[in-house]
Nucleic acid binder design. Structure first.
Length: 597
RNA sequence: GGUCUGGUAGCUCAGUUGGAUAGAGCAACAGCCUUCUAAGCUGUGGGUCAUGGGUUCGAAUCCCAUCCGGAUCACCA
């Protein structure tokens, strides 16, 4: 039982005994005491004032006295206006630290045999261009959320739906066929996904030129976009693909193969992975047949031109296209098929889609369509809708070349970490292998933390001109603190200092030290809340607070040089517990922490 | 235009079910390494919490209106 719930129970007893007031648990407001006041936890007394018919100060005084008599946990209290500030006894903190220190899985709830299964879809790239900063946010969030849900006792299956078919891929294919001169990743030295992306850009360039020409001949922009020869040819190619044209299929296979090899490298560098990958080329037919089933059931309707629509006006929405007039499928069709196959494949209890908030409408519609098709799980799907990454001048636009490439950004971060390490002379005693490992850890740690510390629901700004910091509220600061602790612990071990547990003597610990223990006790609740809220940012901000406090402690209190052996031992145990929570917490963000840096 | 969403320090962000004098980092300035890693620590300056009402003992937080931004409403994904 946590300290908070113990105290809430005690306060409820106090209020009942003193004023005869029955309180719900959530009526008792318990919060951390503000730093400028003495105490550890604060009870807000305003809610009881009415029943007590006394001033807030009196109520605080009376509850305080009751608690002081009632429990050993509270050593003293003070009242300021309507706030009852409680000081927790040092012995309670020491017992708590012992419990935390002995629990290597502190904060983590492992999945039981019969735990519920959560499937988390993230990444979900198109295969016509390389990954960019927006994908990085998606991948980091997806991976982190998966880790967080695992830590909350869920069985988790991470999945990726690769959008490997569609008009956009045909654009790259067509451009490569026309202007590629048989260029390959090998012949060009380009990473496969970058090579295919290059032809996507080339297509767009020629397509734009055609549009301009047609508009010069008097067509409107809309007409020109629809009638440009290149787009007609790409559409023809898509149709040929759906009709299994061998030549088109072969080219498609080859170019997608290049892309996958490239993606694999990016995923590996980013440290994300999947348990099961779905390809839309393998799910869209199921989607089509589901749509056809819907037509037969009378919930969808075909128009005279052959296109199929769902009428959602009854749900307050519009009509939604499910199959084009030429019979080819659209995004929604594929998502219906993918959803059905997943539920056929796994006993999913909760399905989570990590997809940007620009697709809120899409998932609203998807849930309704699945529901209409008779799937009881349709309505319960979770769209984990995260905000866009923007540049100072606004949205990233591939056409304007303002996209921040994922591979480039990771390389730059690692390079920056290497330079900083060199400048500071931090890795002078390390082997070249160690240096490679550490600078990668630090560079990626900076990038990942930068992205994950922001509330996922909000849009965030990334300024490429200002490199991501390594000081302050950053990944490297946290990693550095971990390395510092590990360094002290190594030295303690070298000196033969035993600190595996606290001995029976009770050291006289400071406010700073008991506050650090208090912070540690909050970790499991933070993990739980991060899972419920789908917010890695809660963990990031929590770890930062712990680390900031710890660095003040580190600065002001000696450990190895402390003469009192009981205190020395206590501080080492405290430090090791902090290091464990840092490592566990950062692990939930997908960030590694080094032993030295 | 309909729907959704956001607006907190020069910049990037926190701010718990409504609670005490709204907090961090960056940037600026001033200090701290003969002492366990200075990627650290300490201090100074910096705010009409977009605006105006309302509810409340108490509002950055809840409600209404207004202003400004973003997303979406595609035979794109």
């Amino acid at each position: 039982m946590s300290l908070e719930s113990i105290l809430i129970t005690l306060v409820a007893e106090a209020v009942k005994s003193l004023y005869g007031l029955e309180t719900e648990e959530n009526q008792i407001q318990l919060q951390k005491t503000k730093k400028e006041f003495e105490g550890d936890l604060t009870v807000v007394t305003f809610p009881f004032v009415k029943a007590a018919r006394k001033s807030p100060e009196q109520v605080g005084q009376e509850i305080g006295e009751f608690l002081l008599k009632d429990t050993e946990v509270i050593s003293k209290f003070n009242v300021v206006k309507g706030f009852l500030n409680l000081s927790i006894s040092k012995s309670f903190w020491l017992e708590t630290l012992t419990a935390i220190h002995s629990n290597t899985d502190f904060g983590i709830t492992k999945a039981a045999e019969d735990a519920a299964l959560m499937m988390i879809e993230y990444s979900s790239p198109n295969t016509n261009k390389p990954l960019h900063l927006g994908h990085i946010r998606n991948n980091l969030l997806g991976h982190s959320i998966a880790e967080i849900q695992k830590a909350n006792g869920w069985k988790v299956i991470k999945t990726n739906i690769v959008n490997d078919r569609g008009i956009h891929i045909c654009k790259s294919m067509l451009a490569w066929k026309k202007w590629g001169k048989d260029e390959t990743p090998e012949s060009s030295g380009l990473k496969g996904d970058h090579l295919v992306g290059k032809y996507y850009v080339i297509f767009d360039k020629h397509y734009k030129a055609e549009i301009k020409e047609l508009m010069g001949k008097g067509l409107t922009e809309e007409e020109a976009k629809k009638s440009a020869p290149l787009i007609l040819e790409a559409q023809k190619m898509l149709l040929a693909w759906e009709n299994n044209d061998p030549e088109v299929r072969q080219l498609w296979k080859t170019m997608n193969g290049w892309v996958y090899a490239g993606f694999d490298k990016t995923y590996k560098q980013l440290g994300v992975s999947f348990d099961k990958i779905y390809y839309e080329s393998e799910t869209y037919l199921t989607g089509k047949s589901e749509v056809e089933r819907g037509v037969k059931k009378g919930i969808f309707s075909a128009r005279s031109d052959g296109s199929v629509w769902a009428d959602l006006t009854g749900d307050g929405l519009d009509e939604k296209l499910l199959l084009r007039a030429d019979g080819t499928s659209v995004y929604m069709t594929q998502d219906i098929g993918t959803a059905k196959l997943r539920y056929d494949d796994y006993p999913i209890n909760k399905m989570v889609y990590v997809v940007g908030n620009e697709q809120n409408y899409h998932f609203q519609v998807l849930a309704i369509l699945l529901d209409k098709l008779g799937y009881e799980w349709g309505k319960s799907l979770v769209h984990f809708s995260y905000g866009m990454v923007e540049l100072p001048e606004g949205k990233m636009k591939s056409r304007e070349g303002t996209v921040v490439d994922a591979d480039d950004l990771m390389d730059e971060m690692i390079e920056a970490a290497r330079e900083t390490s060199q400048e500071l002379g931090k890795l002078d005693n390390c082997t070249s292998e160690e240096i490679v490992t550490i600078v990668r850890m630090v560079g990626l740690g900076a990038l990942k933390y930068f992205i994950l510390k922001v509330d996922p629901r909000k849009n965030m700004t990334f300024n490429p001109k200002e490199s991501i910091d390594f000081n302050g509220n950053t990944g490297p600061f946290i990693q550095y603190t971990h390395a510092r602790i590990k360094s002290v612990l190594r030295k303690a071990a070298e000196q033969g200092i035993e600190y595996s547990s606290l001995n029976d003597n009770q050291p006289d610990i400071s406010e700073k030290e008991s506050y650090l223990i208090q912070l540690l006790t909050g970790f499991p609740a933070v993990v739980r809340e991060a899972g419920e809220e789908f917010s890695p940012a809660l963990i990031a901000n929590y770890i930062y607070e712990v680390v900031k406090e710890y660095n003040q402690f580190y600065h002001d209190f000696p450990m190895l040089k402390e003469e009192n052996p009981t205190l020395k031992q206590f501080r080492l145990v405290l430090s090791e517990s902090i290091a464990t929570v840092i490592k566990t917490g950062m692990g939930l963000l997908g960030i590694d922490v080094p032993e030295r840096m």
